[in-house]
Amino acid sequence: MTVKAEGVSRRYFRKTGTANYFDAVQPVSLEIAPGGMTVLTGRSGSGKTTLLNMLSGLLVPTGGKVWYDDTDLYALDDRALSRLRSERTGVVPQGRSAVDTLTVLENILLPARLYQRELPVEAAVRWMEKLGIAPLRDARPAELSGGELRRMAIVRALAQAPDVLFADEPTGDLDDENTRLVLSAFRDFAHEEKKAVFMVTHENDALLYADRVLRMDHGQVTS
């Protein structure tokens, strides 16, 4: 599946200097093709997360369109958009992203369970082993460290075998060894399973794994 952004922008209404608004993302056009890993870097507050959220169907743009192949993402109603998010995208957000009342494995299988799809237990176990959290499958999120929680979110996104994986600072809480594990997992996912990976990061190491690097500055993609 190819993700295409056409002049996508996001304006927030807030007092900024003399203006009453702030353009977090200025019109951006880009394409994310399957089989490659795209890395978006830039300073804090440059609009990277906002762009990722708009591309992943989590935030309605104030301008432009996002296409998933021939589907205009934001022309879908909430029900269809939610189902599409569950079936075709995997998102690793910043910060904690666990449902505290579920175990690690239940959290990982949640997207499939919400729509009563076949549970990707085998894939979940495989990715958990690969990222070193297999022994934690029955633990509760409250019992996990920040790094373990982050890897749980990554496994949750990967186990669904989405067409496109969006990850926002996925290695933020990880040590060097786990960072390498995660980055190679993403690269393998893109290359071997012919999926698209779009990652936002400050991590310089990530650039070594990227097939394409984009930079963002003041809401604009500069390269």
Partner: peptide
Amino acid sequence: TREFAVLRLVGASRGM
């Protein structure tokens, strides 16, 4: 709020 945002992230609709 965070818990509900996570549920939305993994595909829960507003109705759900």
